[in-house]
């Protein structure tokens, strides 16, 4: 369409200002922090409490590089990269989407239980509960079952929150779909899932695969209701969403599910834990599947972390690990409505 005289895309700024919702992108009037100084004091106290929690339990605090030669291949995570001059000359390094790979290499090297407060980066994740860079609390417990780690994660959350939430309840992923939507995520025909997703989301889902339908229904209809009267733990995710978790059979009908959990409080996903995959061959196969899916979706290729695979080859102890969104937990603990209110500066102000 023909632009009106004098209209250029950058003029957008001129009219959005009238709406009062978007600031001039070149303005530096927003130099001030997004969190109040009082909130930042509260944040520091809560982080000290997290460190004390692990110190009491003899879990070692570690620091690993934010940059890696390999990155996350997960097609649903967009990695940022930088060009750096290193001993090897000019090369491309990936900013971590979580500290998982480096921490697993420490486990394989015999570190024992470890935790890290790690700055993580996910391109394009922008919203009330997302910021491109954020703080992840990740910890690994060699020898822990998934149940033992769920209990520890619950204890940590309760230690951080000033007002104790209601009781902790556990739900199977498929039971949530059955109870709340009347469909079975694993056995309901794809056509029926597409119709339901299209109806609930108000978008065309005719060519969507099963995972996309489930993701949409989970995000829009189930998640917002979770954690409203206590802590809700969701287990037994679809096998296709296993990522770096082991898979096992659902005793009900033998359907393969992922040995994963997520913890929700007040509609917010706080933590995501795995019974960690230790099989290097299986891990390599999953990385390759990711790479193929990336190619199909025309997403940029991300280098596989070959050192992680070598560490798994050498042998990583069985156990469980979990990543927890620190900004979100602090948001809930301090009674704020967005993570921006508990971060010194969000990305738009960086």
């Amino acid at each position: 369409m023909a632009p009106a005289p004098g209209f250029k895309p950058h003029n957008c700024v001129a009219f959005v200002v009238l709406e009062g919702t978007v600031k001039d992108s070149e303005s530096v009037a927003d130099w001030q922090p997004t969190a109040s100084i009082e909130t930042l004091r509260g944040r520091a106290r809560l982080i000290a409490r997290m460190r004390a929690f692990f110190a009491e339990r003899d879990v070692l605090e570690v620091e690993t590089p934010v940059l890696g030669h390999g990155g996350s291949t997960d097609p649903h995570l967009a990695s940022l990269s930088v060009e750096a001059v290193t001993q090897a000359g000019r090369e491309r390094l990936w900013l971590q989407t979580s500290p998982e790979f480096a921490m697993k290499r420490l486990l394989a090297a015999g570190s024992g239980p470890i935790f890290q407060l790690a700055r993580s980066f996910r391109d394009g994740e922008v919203g009330r509960r997302h910021n491109i860079e954020f703080t992840m609390l990740e910890w690994y417990r060699p020898g822990f079952s998934l149940d033992a780690l769920i209990a520890e994660c619950d204890a940590l959350i309760r230690q951080v929150l000033p007002v104790p939430p209601g009781e902790t309840r556990r739900h199977r992923y498929r039971d949530l779909f059955r109870e709340r939507l009347g469909v079975d995520p694993f056995t309901t025909p794809l056509g029926a899932l597409r119709d339901l997703a299209a109806e609930r989301g108000g978008l065309a889902m005719a060519d969507a695969d099963r995972e996309t339908c489930l993701d949409l229904l989970m995000s829009l209809t189930i998640e917002p209701e979770l954690g409203r009267s206590g802590i809700d733990v969701v287990v037994d995710y679809p096998a296709a969403q296993a990522a770096l978790a082991r898979r096992h059979r659902d005793p009900e009908d033998g359907v393969e599910v992922a040995a994963r959990f997520e913890i929700y409080l007040q509609g917010l996903e706080l933590a995501n834990g795995y019974d960690e995959l230790t099989d290097a061959t299986e891990q390599r196969a999953r990385f390759e599947q990711d790479a193929q899916q990336r190619q199909r979706l025309e997403l940029p290729n991300v280098e596989i972390d070959r050192r992680l695979l070598a560490a798994l080859d050498a042998g990583m102890p069985s156990g469980s690990g979990v990543a927890l969104g620190v900004d979100r937990l602090i948001q809930l603990a301090l009674g704020k409505s967005s993570i921006a209110e508990v971060m010194a500066f969000t990305t738009p102000r960086c």
Binding site: G127, D215, S219, L220, E223
Partner: peptide
Amino acid sequence: NEYVKPGKGQAF
């Protein structure tokens, strides 16, 4: 505009 994303998976 609200960004929603399940733990692992497609964002909307």
